[in-house]
Design a protein around this nucleic acid. Structure first.
Lengths: 105, 105
DNA sequence: ATGTTCTATCGTATATTTACGATATACAAT
DNA sequence: ATTGTATATCGTAAATATACGATAGAACAT
């Protein structure tokens, strides 16, 4: 009962799936939108804008950081989050490529 | 301990998250690629191309059908799957819109 | 030194996802 | 009628995700 066949797919398929998983929760979509509007943003500000506890928001931020879509820089006691444009752009291109390839339009 | 705060986000955020969840597994990315190459495809063909059992592939197809990215038409004892171009295009646009909004490039 | 503020992590409960084999169903062919 | 083929669904086990409160750690202010 070998578990998780994830590794039996191509690196490209795994990478796209990872990016998609990162944005597969409305809270994380909302976080990306907030960061794009504010450019740079404290974790606490995000918590205030979402109907979730601080620890839950922190977990969502961690998930976005895991694939590299965002990064956090420590600023005294606070942490400033922002989009990691380089990786985000790579993710955008990979997803674009899949969508364009699949779509007949 | 109210569970799942999903419904407290905007319909757009939920829709994007749903689409992303549908493509958040490498097997489903692979299925979309197969369907795009073959245009129309029997379920059994997909099973042969993936390192997964028939029942597992069937579940993945169901997940893609759930959000509408693909549709299956019954053809005798077989089922022919194909991309649902209308919904797929809507999904593409929604994801594009998010990516473009967030990305500084 | 002490307290305050901000964030991450731990512990935990519940829900969902992923995977499979077995079974049921639906149609075609014999 | 029976057999074979194709697919979906059921039952189930293990893994992951989602959510929270409590706690820990780090930096600043007093």
């Amino acid at each position: 009962m070998a578990y998780s066949k994830r590794e039996e797919f191509t690196p490209e398929e795994i990478w796209i799936a990872d990016v998609a998983k990162a944005i597969s929760h409305p809270a994380r979509v909302a976080i990306l939108k907030i960061l794009s509007e504010q450019n740079v943003c404290m974790c606490g500000d995000i918590v205030e804008l979402l109907p979730l506890s601080q620890s839950t928001v922190s977990q969502h931020l961690k998930e976005l950081k895991r694939v590299g879509l965002i990064k956090g820089e420590i600023d005294g006691p606070k942490v400033c989050y922002c989009i990691d444009n380089e990786i985000f752009n790579k993710a955008k291109q990979a997803v674009d490529e899949l969508f364009s390839r699949v779509c007949n339009c």
